[in-house]
């Protein structure tokens, strides 16, 4: 992890090193996204919206136009941009609190309307920015600042299965997948397909990325990866959930 990574072309060099904590997964998601933007050669058309949550720290991350919106409201802001300027490639970047809690109605409705935007949601099992409270994705029994005795699923329900939910409410043409920062190449491919889907105007595209939050998990590098690769992937299945129907079908 300590090696100097090659920066995607679309990254803004002047704002590196980035502002995320050491070992944070957000940086890896944005690396995969940067590469996907480069490979599709869409840097001059991308409009990037980031939520309030640690995603806000990406407000100057890329050499693309970026707007930092409100907690949970990035999806509707990007929908608004896309409706007004269909030639732009609109990306809504948010956390699991932003997307599945406060912004859930927007995610659901944008998906239902098959809005031609790409939503990327970073699942780190907690509210990172506010210091580690329970998120909709917090695993059963997991301790957080607001579940100090462990998440009790009887009281608070089970972790949200986002891509599965989005897949269930979208029509043909939508793309949904779950990647992980433990497999950046695969994640990049999912992001690329999601963006391609928007480019082709097929429908809503949604990628959840499993990601580490060592600061609030209080984990060292090894334990962060272990939690990500064992605990999280056991509950959240990595892979494509829904891909657009092929033409020949």
């Amino acid at each position: 992890m300590a090696t100097v990574p090659k920066m995607p072309k679309s990254w803004r060099v002047e704002t590196k090193p980035h502002k995320f904590c050491p070992g944070c997964g957000h940086g890896l998601v944005l690396k995969a996204l940067g590469e996907a933007i480069d490979e599709l050669d869409i840097q001059d058309r991308v409009v990037f919206g980031c939520d309030i949550g640690c995603s806000l720290l990406a407000w100057d991350f890329f050499n693309v136009d970026i707007v930092q919106t409100h907690h949970g409201r990035t999806t509707p802001v990007m929908v608004g941009v896309k409706r007004a300027r269909p030639d732009r490639i609109c990306i809504a970047y948010m956390g699991d609190g932003g997307g599945y809690a406060i912004g859930a109605q927007h995610l659901v409705n944008a998906a239902t309307r098959n809005e031609k935007i790409t939503a990327i949601l970073v699942n780190n099992c907690n509210y990172g920015m506010t210091g580690g409270q329970m998120a909709p994705t917090t695993l059963p029994e997991m301790k957080t600042e607001t579940t100090p005795y462990g998440r009790d699923v009887e009281e608070t329900g089970y972790p949200t299965q986002g891509p599965e939910m989005v897949a269930a409410i979208t029509r043909e043409g939508a793309y949904t997948a779950r990647g992980t920062v433990a497999k950046v190449r695969q994640l990049k491919n999912y992001l690329k397909k999601a963006l391609q889907n928007q480019l082709e105007g097929k429908g809503f595209s949604f990628v959840e990325a499993l990601s580490g939050c060592p600061t609030n998990w209080s984990t060292n590098a090894k334990a962060t990866w272990a939690f990500l690769e064992e605990n999280m992937t056991k509950y959240f299945k990595v892979g494509e959930v829904k891909v657009p129907v092929k033409e020949e079908e």
């Binding site: 506010t130 600042e145 607001t146």
Partner: peptide, 11 residues
């Protein structure tokens, strides 16, 4: 719902 600077009331 969490928000700084009131989080610790909930905590």
């Amino acid at each position: 719902y969490p928000i700084t600077p009131q989080n610790e009331i909930m905590h």
